[in-house]
């Protein structure tokens, strides 16, 4: 069977996902054995911008009108489009201040020089194109990325955990920072896959992987309020990585 033709693309973000891919040093040769990488600007000098692709991996959020055009072009030439990283899946950090007008943000950050480019409120990829599969994380987990490749090469849509970070945290037998230490932990509403890395180092979950399916935001907020956190604190933490997520939007508009 021919190797799938692959492109790796970055919208607006920190290129963290592309760095994770390049950091797969021990596996890079094996990756090249199974994938035919045609486009990967961060890593290669010769890129094919036209060919049809079997898989496009796209990281970053869409924050400029040009990116929307580019993304749609990538979608058109790709059989599968996979969103990589929290920015691509949820909007990420760039979407934190979406309620402020892009013009005002641009003025504040760039001053008059901001005139030369346009910006729109940061959005995840699925706001513009069909996304076939998502690997979230800030950055993505190397193991999840490799597993996704293995499944795709086999011909299957990958399966990644849909449960919450709490589950992984318990399996690591960490002391619960939310229950035992009353810290602002988003583990119960954040999707697993990181093996509760931060929590295993004694740092509460900041929600960088985005919300779990059917996240019970209302209950999480109640729990944190009872522990003495203000709605402002909680809201800021919740909106850091996945502000455009529907569960969060619904919760905060309802209030």
């Amino acid at each position: 069977m021919a190797k799938p033709k692959v492109g790796v693309f970055g919208m607006t973000g920190c290129a963290g996902e592309q760095i994770v891919i390049l950091n797969c040093e021990d596996e890079l040769m094996d990756i090249l054995k199974v994938l035919d990488i045609r486009s990967f600007h961060t890593a290669m000098s010769e890129n094919d911008e036209q060919c049809d692709l079997d898989i496009a991996f796209v990281e970053g959020a869409v924050v400029q009108p040009e990116e929307e055009v580019w993304l749609k072009k990538i979608r058109k030439r790709s059989r599968l489009l996979i969103a990589l990283g929290t920015c691509a899946v949820w909007g990420g950090v760039a979407a934190m201040k979406n309620e402020v007008s892009p013009q005002r943000l641009k003025d504040e950050v760039y001053g008059p020089r901001g005139q030369i480019f346009k910006s729109i409120p940061a959005q995840p990829l699925h706001s513009f194109v069909k996304v076939d599969f998502s690997v979230s994380g800030c950055p993505i987990e190397k193991e999840q990325f490799l597993q996704a490749i293995a499944s795709l090469v086999h011909g299957d849509i990958p399966v990644l955990p849909k449960y919450a970070v709490c589950t992984e945290c318990k399996l690591n037998e960490n002391t619960c920072l939310l229950v035992e230490k009353s810290e602002l932990c988003l583990g119960p509403i954040t999707v697993a896959g990181c093996n509760a890395r931060c929590l295993s180092y004694g740092i509460p979950c900041c929600g960088c992987r985005g919300p779990v399916e059917e996240a019970n935001i209302a209950s999480e907020v109640e729990i944190l309020k009872e522990k003495g956190f203000t709605l402002g604190d909680i809201r800021n933490q919740l909106r850091t990585y996945a502000a455009p997520a529907e569960v969060l939007q619904t919760y905060f508009t309802k209030r």
């Binding site: 449960y163 919450a164 709490c166 589950t167 318990k170 399996l171 619960c176 583990g187 119960p188 509403i189 779990v212 059917e214 019970n216 209302a218 209950s219 999480e220 109640e222």
Partner: peptide, 12 residues
Amino acid sequence: EKCLSCGTCSMV
């Protein structure tokens, strides 16, 4: 309404 479906109770 209260349950977070976080899986904690099942794991422990």
